[in-house]
Design a protein around this nucleic acid. Sequence first.
DNA 1: ACCCGTGTTCGCTG
DNA 2: TCAGCGAACACGGG
Length: 276
Amino acid sequence: MPELPEVEWAARQLGRWLVGRRVEAVACDPRARRLFRPGSPAAFARALRGARVAAVARHGKQLLLTLETARGPLGVNAHLGMTGKWVARPASAPEPGHARLTLRLDDGAVVHYSDPRMFGRLRLVPRARFDEWPDLAALGPDPLATPIDLTRLRARLAATRRAVKVALLDQALLAGVGNIHASEACWRARLDPRRRGDSLAPAEVARLARAVRASLRFGLAGLDRPEIEYLEEGGENPFHVYGREGARCPHRGCGGTVERLVQAQRSTYLCRRCQD
DNA sequence: ACCCGTGTTCGCTG
DNA sequence: TCAGCGAACACGGG
């Protein structure tokens, strides 16, 4: 599920559901020990009970919740991993499958975090000092929130021998680009994803930066419709090359075929005819 | 049954 | 010292 557009969408939903609300009861799945850091699921539940949610923010794929507790501010850094999902339900509704965290709010609503594979994380950040948290400090700039600094991107790509598509997955380069949009951005920029980072000319870096932002905005536009209440699996593949092995390249007049290959243990989709 | 997966982290290697 | 690589994590879906 989660690429950066989905995480942005989750942040907006969480903002609507949680900000200004008090958490009256918390339940954590005791078997999901690896999800809650530091400490145990029970300790996490104790830390959140009675807190009021002051803000929900996002940087890259990291969600940042600021809570006010009796002992002062407390941060929660949430990451959806591969299969994490936040859902709001009426208190009377059955909880979703693989609910790992359940928050009962003072307005009667119930918000669940569900995550079958438990590759996500729910991390307590003391005093909500996100800027001092090492994992977050290591992230690069967020390409959905701010224009891409071309000088910085050029310098960082010039310093790596890795393939450009693999470099795009490095959250220290740009925070939030995942496997889908890395492929999509290379296709939009007509760049071969196997090109070494240090082989790109300045004009190619500029094309790539535009393509990254265009792909992310395109992804968000597909979600940002008021009638959507929950993100569901299935439906049409909204992407241009991702998951489209064997299809015609959608670039006008190209006539090539989308192919799949593997880079750094992840699928890459490309059209060899127009990406070079 | 078998293979695949929208992500991150850790340990090894050269 | 460090960039880069590959296994590991855990489970559902095709």
